[in-house]
């Protein structure tokens, strides 16, 4: 209940108070390690609840980034038991019981402190993508079928977990040569826009580095929005690059007036 129910103590909800062990990575760029905490659990508790409880009662300087707590803003990305996850959407009772829960910051970006990483690289990449540029003669009629295709990519909440799990960034650290899945779907939403006037294939095959992707689909696996990043964005873009670069037959048949 909005006003009175707020005062109901959490433990009273069912009476069953159990504890869980958390191993939270604490540290910064120079040093760090997992630190153990015990947290009393409440029904339906998510990892973010547990981390905030640690912050409130045991480690007031624990750094964690969060905002909406509703899986809509994409701020609280972390690695829970080794898997990129939104902390606000990962329930404790869905994680193996009797085992400690590890919570680490994202690996693909430099850690600032504790669970917070510096994701500013992503914003720099986004700046390199030319904005939507409508055709001069655009009639602004768009079909639902076209909207549906673009809309899937535009569901992205920029949690950057796809960037984190992508081995090109995570392990090979090729941030200077690859835009990552998040910005390939952004490019896809523009490239497939019926009214966008720009030719984006050169950028996609050039500085965005789409050829580095070896479609192992981990980005799709971790996407909290269920976007089919690989099948609906990256592979179609790869095929468009093939049209341009590797398919003489296609070029012969579809010579576009320039």
């Amino acid at each position: 209940m909005s006003t009175d129910g707020a005062q109901t103590p959490i433990a009273d909800q069912t009476g069953e108070a159990t504890t869980r062990t958390l191993h939270i990575w604490r540290g910064d760029l120079t040093d760090g390690g997992l630190v153990e905490f015990e947290v009393e659990t409440a029904p339906g508790m998510v990892v973010l609840d547990a981390v905030l409880e640690v912050q409130r009662s045991q480690a007031p300087d624990l750094a964690v980034r969060w905002n909406c707590k509703a899986a809509k803003c994409g701020s609280c990305s972390a690695e829970v038991n080794g898997r990129p996850s939104l902390m606000c959407k990962t329930r404790l009772d869905h994680l193996p019981e009797g085992e400690p829960i590890t919570v680490e910051p994202l690996h693909a970006f430099p850690v600032i402190r504790d669970l917070v990483t510096d994701v500013s690289w992503n914003y720099e990449v986004n700046k390199k993508i030319a904005p939507f540029t409508p055709k001069p003669d655009a009639d602004w009629l768009i079909g639902q079928e076209d909207a549906d295709r673009m809309s899937e990519f535009r569901k992205c909440i920029e949690c950057f977990m796809c960037q984190d799990v992508c081995h090109i960034l995570r392990n090979h650290r090729m941030h200077d040569r690859y835009f990552g899945p998040r910005f390939l779907i952004r490019l896809a939403s523009l490239e497939m826009h019926p009214l966008d006037d720009l030719d984006r294939i050169d950028q996609i095959s050039g500085e965005a580095g789409i050829a580095l992707c070896n479609i192992t689909k981990c980005c799709t696996e971790v996407c909290p929005e269920g976007i089919h990043i690989t099948d609906n964005a990256i592979i179609p873009l790869k095929e468009r690059v093939v049209d341009r670069r590797f398919d003489p037959l296609f070029r012969l048949l579809h010579r576009r007036p320039r």
Partner: peptide, 9 residues
């Protein structure tokens, strides 16, 4: 069909 930019034009 995927290579089309407009499905409804």
């Amino acid at each position: 069909g995927g290579r089309l930019d407009c499905f409804t034009c």
